[in-house]
Design a protein around this nucleic acid. Structure first.
Lengths: 255, 255
DNA sequence: CTTCAATCGGGTACGTTGTACCCAGTAATA
DNA sequence: TATTACTGGGTACAACGTACCCGATTGAAG
């Protein structure tokens, strides 16, 4: 229960794993390893997609058909494994467009949409609590990729950083609100409709009490049923609206 | 480990608890209850502030000086308790200003700042994964309070909803990035400085590899050390910049 | 006052989690 | 062939949420 955190136990080992600096060409005694870190990470992602963020290490072992403790020969612990999984999922595909060749706004919208897509496919990502930024090779490449959207502008470096961080945080924040419920409904929890049906009478009574006048004023309309994607797009759109004048002012002249 | 979710087990009981519709005036046989739900919620918040989101039910019992299972006489389970804690923390103080009497922009900035403050004081809130919106009395009152910022405007209800949701998601998203690390460092985890010191060599080597040209181009500056609050403010400011023309266009004439 | 019944707090115990530890088997080197 | 490092598998433990039981307590009914 209750969301223990994801940080890094032994940072040295964790970073070695992230940057794949291990495996001394394997001319050591002993049997050859049956697994690889990458296979474990891939299997763990599969399991997490199925079981949600509360996936168990035993499930990962099972997915790989090995003993429960075998994984620990490759990965120091669950926290480090999650770090690897997170970094893996921020890998950008080979068919990614060149953001530098695109208008800055459509480029950033594209980044937001594709990030949203990743969250849709792996909602457990939103339930993971990273104590420290992971910054593995794939994350770094993703960041580098996004920076391409600012290539033809002279926005100060610091502000570029702020803009990218802000955009990602907007997408992540919106996704958390709306996508978490899609992941791994374990057991006797109820559906969306059932929840609102149960909650309805209480809300009606509360609104009828007059203690929430402003909510009451527009509660009977369908102003409520907005999808998560709508919410994300609205926030991103307003954010980009606000960013626009600064981008235009810093547009680099083609000289 | 790994973030099991917060939803609602039995919705009926959970909602009764949220709306405090229990306790039939106590003219029943049996000993008088030693505790109240509110005392439990308060104690649980104290414990969570100290131990982080991975606080244990036994710690709450201990804080109250009762047996481990006694809490379960009042609250069906941990998930429901967390729901109550979350709702409790979105209560607005009695000294809250009247947003309707304030300029819309400063009003929304105030909302963002005070939300940030709540997260600063209770970082474990950011680690909690709510599967369904809680919408208890305090949350609803908080929402009603925020709606006051739009009183003197004619923005469509749906867009008001989108704007408020967006603002909250921006604050929450930013807070998650930067505030989670402050909560409950349990055991042999390392400090911020140690982490960056350990990560530094890897990043330098990665950047030197030339695979991240854009990151390399502005990595040696101090464009990186932005505080979480800076990041939040930048995102909120751009969002409000983008919202501004729509707010101005919908300003209600004093007639 | 006695009896009944409902409800209290406390204690014990179970299943599940991450993972520390031990052990027998394997393969490269001397 | 003997040595030695390393493998995967199994057992075991502490901590967790919580189901369950039990004696004690207190109001209502006779």
């Amino acid at each position: 229960m209750a969301t223990p955190q994801t940080g890094a136990g032994d940072p040295k080992r964790s970073l070695e794993l992230l940057w794949r600096e291990y495996e001394p060409q394997h001319s050591k005694p002993g049997p050859k390893p049956k697994l690889t870190v990458d296979r474990i990470v891939e299997a763990a992602i599969t399991v997490a997609d199925r079981e949600g963020s509360c996936f168990g290490m035993r499930s990962v072992s099972n997915e790989l058909g090995v003993g429960a403790m075998t994984i620990y020969r490759y990965v120091p612990g669950k926290k480090e494994l999650i770090d690897l999984m997170v970094d893996r999922l921020s890998r950008i595909g080979p068919d990614a467009p060149d953001l530098a060749a695109t208008d800055w706004r459509t480029a950033l919208e594209l980044v937001a949409e594709s990030t949203w897509q990743v969250y849709s496919e792996h909602p457990w990502l939103l339930e993971v609590n990273q104590k420290r930024p992971v910054l593995g090779p794939d994350s770094l490449e993703g960041y580098d990729f996004v920076l391409g959207a600012f290539d033809s502008h002279d926005l100060p470096d610091r502000e570029v950083n702020l803009a990218v961080t802000g955009l990602m945080n907007i997408v992540t924040g919106s996704a958390r609100q709306y996508l978490i419920r899609d992941s791994a409904e374990d057991g006797p929890e109820l559906s969306e409709a059932e929840w609102w049906e149960a909650q309805g009478p209480y809300l009606e009574r509360a609104i009828a009490s007059g203690r929430y006048p402003r909510v009451a004023k527009f509660s009977d309309e369908d102003s409520w049923d907005l999808t998560g994607h709508d919410a994300m797009r609205y926030a991103v759109d307003r954010f980009l609206d606000g960013l626009a004048p600064r981008m235009e002012a810093s547009r680099r002249t083609p000289s």
